Simulated assay, not measured.
Amino acid sequence: MRPVVSAHSQSSTVPALHLPATAAQPSPFATGAAPTMSSREIADLVEKRHDNVKRTIETLVERGVIVRPQFEDEHSTDALGRSRTERVYRIGKRDSYVIVAQLSPEFTARLVDRWQELETQASRPALPANYAAALRELASTVEVVEQQQALISEQQPKVEFYDQFVKADGLLGYQEAGTAAGCYPNKFCNWLKIDHLFYRGKKLMPRSQFVRRGLFEIRPELDADGESHLRGWVTAKGVEHFAKHAPDNIRITSREVKP
């Protein structure tokens, strides 16, 4: 009876920096593909000869019960020093259960345990194969972190701007919007009247082209008598736009801002 091969039966020595001293053997899930089990592993699990397991696999493929598996040729040397090549199939999870059920259904529990080991290994992050690979991975990680930090620095003024001035609904009155845009409120309103606003009765309303651009919104509101009237509001997008494009002569200079 062959001993059952366990994923934990082999040990490896890991030097400083927690990197393997030599390149690891190719893993069927190193590239993120679904884990597979070799036909040799299945033979060990069910305590059958490998050639018998392969014949069973080929028979099931011919009958259309399982898909045709991928394979790899393993090269080895026998006890007499002769070179030999043996084909080894890579089997997916579903088909492995079909094969074991055909060969030795009493060993299904062993198969379940082995798949748990394989899937646990597949979920672990792979260590770099050698020191050069580790250095390349470190350099790549540093570059990504630097790019993220640069993006955060670029976006931070905009985030602080919105947090400070924009209400929960994202709308501000004309004078509030002027203050948020760093302008004198009254001068800001007079500047808006030149091009962006017009009077409808006694109400200043935004022109339709600027509403379509998302700089303003028009919403109804109730007056003290309970009557509904339309009123224009500056959107968060509008505040940002005016903060960039308002003329210098209506802006509050830094010397005029009290600490």
Rank of each mutant, 00 (worst) to 15 (best):
V145P: 03
D163I: 06
L111F: 07
P125Y: 00
L138R: 15
E119A: 07
S140I: 02
A168C: 10
T108R: 10
L192F: 00
T179H: 02
E106L: 12
F161E: 00
Q148I: 13
S123M: 09
A168H: 05
A134C: 00
P105F: 06
V166D: 04
Y184P: 02
V166Q: 12
Q116D: 08
Q116L: 12
D113Q: 14
E117D: 09
Y174I: 02
R114H: 15
C183H: 05
Y162A: 15
P128H: 01
K187I: 00
S140F: 03
N186L: 11
Y131T: 15
R136M: 11
S123K: 11
A150Q: 11
A101I: 05
P128Y: 02
E143N: 10
P157N: 08
Q116M: 12
Q147G: 08
P185K: 06
L127H: 04
Q149S: 09
A168K: 10
Q175W: 02
Y174T: 02
F188G: 02
L151E: 07
Y131H: 11
V100F: 06
V159S: 13
Y131Q: 14
R136E: 05
T120E: 14
E106D: 13
D113C: 15
P157Q: 08
P125V: 00
E154A: 10
Q121E: 14
Q155P: 04
V112Y: 10
E160G: 03
V142D: 06
R124T: 06
I152N: 09
Y174G: 06
Y131W: 06
G178R: 01
Q148R: 11
P157T: 07
G170V: 10
A129S: 15
L135I: 12
K167R: 12
F188K: 04
F107L: 14
L171I: 14
Q121Y: 15
A101T: 06
E154H: 05
A150V: 08
G178E: 01
A177D: 05
A132M: 05
R114G: 15
E143F: 04
T141I: 09
L172S: 03
